[in-house]
Design a protein around this nucleic acid. Sequence first.
DNA 1: TTTGAATAGTTGCACAAACAACTATATGTC
DNA 2: GACATATAGTTGTTTGTGCAACTATTCAAA
Lengths: 150, 150
Amino acid sequence: MSNNQFKKGELYSFITGKASTAIARRLQKKFNTSGLHLTIEQWSVLYHLWKQDGISQQELCNATYRDKPSITRLVDNLEKLTLVKRVASETDRRINRIYLTKQGQKLEEETMLLADETLNEALLSVPADKVDVCKEVLQIVYDNLVNSNE
Amino acid sequence: MSNNQFKKGELYSFITGKASTAIARRLQKKFNTSGLHLTIEQWSVLYHLWKQDGISQQELCNATYRDKPSITRLVDNLEKLTLVKRVASETDRRINRIYLTKQGQKLEEETMLLADETLNEALLSVPADKVDVCKEVLQIVYDNLVNSNE
DNA sequence: TTTGAATAGTTGCACAAACAACTATATGTC
DNA sequence: GACATATAGTTGTTTGTGCAACTATTCAAA
């Protein structure tokens, strides 16, 4: 039932995520040299808020694939930086809705430019169709491990 | 000069490494339920020692793509678990060579089986040729960002 | 309506990562 | 040989992660 027809050799670096670590480090350096005091993890939370402001911490857990304590602390730190604000839901008082502040909104343009730049550097000389295959494979891997019960 | 012909959309999850995180978590769970008290990061160090025993901490830095303090502490913890041993080099006393203990050697078979199992589950239903393309792309990404000066 | 289960979020702990600053040893040049 | 420089490794600090245990609130069933 399993597909063993591939070489496992360099696949183990998949596990340690060397490629994504390299991308994250490059982007972090760009943040630092641009004077942005923001970690990649904090940025990844803001990224989802830019797409949809006011979602709950639990929704941020699902979106970023982190557990609840991680999001609690990331939101703590983003609040200290006054980039987001916790607002208790009126209808369900268990829920915190997380809203961007003006400052948090302002970071979108600059950081997304740096993120695009980083991806362009990372994917330089990689044909678009291969990028698509890669995206597809990583999505299936994620679904195989997270959305199934196996 | 940049190749902008691909959609950036879901690419940002590359940066956060969701797929490799999912693989690592699955493998960690297998370790835990097998009663192995070993983190994935510790395992990744042992992995390179199984391939070549007695390499230096600096060589482990390069192999695992981690900085020196990270390796210092990983080796600290592996020594506490009596899985490896630091041995000062005779010819260059700055260098620590890291050697597997009997216990460290014994872990190879069981953990590599669990790692293979994890990769099989992750790549279930992914055709081998697509896995190859994905490996190739991730390798280029890594080289673009780490082995170039850009 | 009371009780028990589910859900949202927080806190404590151990481990890991990135950066800066540090010690110790080796190397190369005058 | 002396001194500057490079290399190997360690330590301190801040941040993030995963797990377990906890509180508060909501929901559902008797």
